[in-house]
């Protein structure tokens, strides 16, 4: 189709072809081979580009600043604030990594374990809630949903006391167990609604072939729902990796601290006072998220947009 948009509002452009159609019958603008034509720039579009570019630059100022500082030593920062790093102090990254590698490992361990547990438990119970019939099902399910009403701030202190009473403070369990538990609620919602969309015929066929309930869960439901499980995992990993208040409360030993809190204790606990290594540490702490997003961004975005709002 060659839909023609007239009067594109503020841009005031006369007539422009929309959505990648060749539009042979249109303006000379398109026949020109200049870059302007490739981008289909008109006055209005130029304005959009300008505004977006400015916003993008402002958004990136802190990141650029972070990178610049991470490559300078204190002398360069205090003496020549505005100049580029010269020489580049790559050893800042070595120093920074020495200070935070342990915290990063702690974070990966706790986030990873709790995410894995969440995915396993939520897919199991999501499957049960979607496909099984048993007395009290909707009642229990509603009871779980009701937890969405509980803000973390209400449970913070009692959960901390609970952890104390269990003797788990200052252990990885103090992070893993509550995170696993808390993450299940939303994961369960997702899993149940996803499993419910799987055609009943698959499971009937499996049953006829003699598959047990657990077999049809593991060999039909899970493979088919891999995308949603990955989405759950990515979201949980990001969420737990960023947790700050809970580890701050339950973990006091620097040996066990997770990265979000450890970064804030750079000077007091780890003894790094130079800004450069500190900034390098901030960047290094982002690596797990960079890795995660570089393959999982698609899942994260899909979860946010299509999956989340149109499930």
């Amino acid at each position: 189709m060659a839909t023609v948009r007239d009067g594109q509002g503020p841009e005031g452009a006369a007539t422009v072809v929309v959505r990648g159609e060749s539009g042979s019958a249109d303006q000379p603008l398109l026949s020109s081979s200049s870059a302007l034509a490739i981008l289909r720039l008109t006055g209005g579009q130029l304005l959009l580009y300008g505004v977006l570019l400015i916003l993008l630059i402002v958004t990136f100022i802190p990141i650029v600043y972070l990178i610049a500082l991470s490559l300078k030593d204190n002398g360069q920062i205090y003496g020549r604030f505005w100049s580029m790093p010269d020489p580049y102090r790559w050893e800042n990254f070595a120093l920074g990594s020495l200070a935070i590698w342990r915290a990063v490992l702690n974070s990966i361990l706790t986030s990873g374990t709790s995410t894995a547990a969440t995915v396993v438990l939520a897919s199991l119970s999501g499957y049960v809630f979607a496909r099984h019939r048993f007395p009290g099902k909707e009642l229990i399910y509603t009871g779980i949903l009701a937890l969405l009403m509980i803000p973390p701030i209400l449970t913070l202190i009692p959960a901390y006391v609970l952890i104390l009473n269990m003797g788990l403070e200052n252990t990885y369990w103090a992070l893993i167990l509550p995170w696993t538990s808390g993450g299940q609620v939303f994961a369960l919602l997702l899993c149940r609604s996803f499993f419910a969309t799987l055609p009943e015929e698959f499971f009937d066929a499996a049953r006829i072939d003699g598959a047990s309930e657990l077999q049809s869960f593991a060999q039909i439901a899970v493979p088919l729902s891999a995308p949603i499980l990955v989405t759950v995992a990515v979201v949980r990993l990001v969420t737990t990796y960023n947790q700050f208040m809970w580890p701050l409360v339950v973990i006091s030993s620097p040996k066990r601290q997770v990265v979000a809190v450890a970064l804030t204790q750079f000077t007091s606990e780890i003894g790094v006072t130079d800004l450069g290594p500190q900034m390098a540490g901030y960047i290094l702490a982002s690596i797990p998220l960079i890795v995660l997003f570089s393959f999982g961004m698609r899942h994260y975005v899909r979860g946010l947009t299509a999956g989340g709002l149109k499930a």
Binding site: F129, A130, T142, L145, A146, L147, L148, M149, I150, P151, P152, I153, T155, L156, A159, P178, W179, S181, G182, G183, V185, F186, L189, L190, R192, S193, A196, V235, V238, T239, T240, N242, Q243, F244, M245, W246, P247, V249, A260, G303, L304, G307, G308, L309, A311
Partner: peptide
């Protein structure tokens, strides 16, 4: 089958601001 009204809200938990026990938030899950 899951109630459609429910699955809509399932993404409530996705806040990044990181609070412990992130049961997420929001009544509208009901």
């Amino acid at each position: 089958l899951s109630t459609p009204g429910v699955s809509n809200k399932s993404w409530f938990n996705r806040n990044r601001s990181g609070m412990p026990l992130s049961t997420g938030s929001g009544l509208s899950g009901l």
